[in-house]
């Protein structure tokens, strides 16, 4: 069980959160210009990194805000937490 630091509510149990997959996936600006392979890559393929992984979480049973977490997929240690629109260091990007 993880203990996750919500950027608004503070430290809460994983029970209160839902996982939203890899973070910082940018939707292509003009999807109509992509071929099937490129569109499939955007839609379905993710990095499955070993090590520090940027992912989205939602405090779904709490304040219902989405935010980003850098989590080590080997140790499960949460390295940092930052609001959507911010960069991992915590500064607005």
């Amino acid at each position: 069980m993880l203990e996750i630091e919500c950027p608004w509510c503070g430290s809460r149990d994983q029970d209160e959160f839902s996982y939203g997959g890899e973070a910082h996936i940018v939707r292509p600006l003009s999807p109509e210009n992509l071929n099937d392979r490129e569109w499939g890559d955007y839609l379905f393929f993710r990095d499955n990194k070993k090590g520090q992984h940027a992912e989205q979480w939602c405090h779904s049973a709490g304040c219902r805000r989405w935010f980003n977490v850098i989590r080590d997929t080997v140790s499960y240690r949460i390295v940092s937490v930052y609001r959507s629109g911010d960069s991992p260091s915590g500064d607005p990007s």
Binding site: E16, A61, G62
Partner: peptide
């Protein structure tokens, strides 16, 4: 309830949405 209910964490005039 998974919330930390210790008075140090859950204080008067506070609320928390939880399960």
């Amino acid at each position: 309830c998974p919330l930390d209910l210790h008075p140090r964490a859950f204080k008067p005039r506070q609320c928390a949405q939880t399960v």
